[in-house]
Nucleic acid binder design. Structure first.
Lengths: 113, 113
DNA sequence: ATAACATATTAAAATATATTTATATGTTTT
DNA sequence: AAAACATATAAATATATTTTAATATGTTAT
């Protein structure tokens, strides 16, 4: 998963409405009208939020008659969980000295040369 | 953690530059100049990205002389990891019938009454 | 076929976010 | 105390996102 795709997932989840849609989809598959009756928002607004989630790969949809059902894609959450482990699995924090890091603090570096 | 705070975390992580800043901070504490030399971006732009991360609770900072060091706050990632488990721990997906859900598909519901 | 339904798409307006330029703040060195 | 350094803040502009209103698409019922 590229950082671009991962950022897209985070951006999609960075909205309270979409976060609640995700919660509503935990273990459940729902049609669009379920969200329409939950949020005080126009139908195109809901449709747009679902599009953002879909294009980020967070939800998948399938039509059944006139309804379109949405469900979560666990792969997207697995990718996010992986990034979360990055900071959680680091036991101790090492302070990087600005003066010794390559390219860091350019003005200082030039003077110390 | 409120959904509002969680959405703020996701929104903050939903940007490629900030995502890379987070990766650079895995197990490390770095001063702002480290990011200045990494990204081709003005100093205030970096400073703004750090502010977004700070206000979301993703990073913490402390001044040491003229430098300000940034490090990750594991609590924020723990909160995100918790939400990730929501879909990952659901074994099977149940389809919710639009007709039987309370308030769902209003027009249909009125007719079926 | 026509009408009604469920949802998506488009275009426009409203709102939020990011970037830049200029300036301010706090710290260290001289 | 003055100059230089590292970073933050403010104001202005540029860009992206969200919302709404109008319309289109695909499906089912009549």
């Amino acid at each position: 998963m590229t950082d671009k795709a991962l950022a897209k997932i985070f951006k999609a989840l960075g909205d309270e409405t979409r976060l609640e849609i995700v919660r509503m989809l935990a273990g459940k598959e729902r049609c669009v009208c379920a969200f329409l009756s939950t949020f005080s928002m126009t139908q195109p607004a809901i449709s747009n939020h679902l599009r953002v989630l879909r294009e980020a790969g967070i939800v998948q949809d399938s039509r059944d008659g006139r309804w379109i059902f949405y469900r979560l894609n666990p792969d997207a959450f697995a990718a996010v969980a992986t990034l979360c482990q990055l900071p959680l699995s680091q036991p101790k924090i090492e302070r990087i000295d600005p003066l010794t890091e390559p390219g860091a603090c350019p003005k200082q570096k030039e003077e110390s040369a």
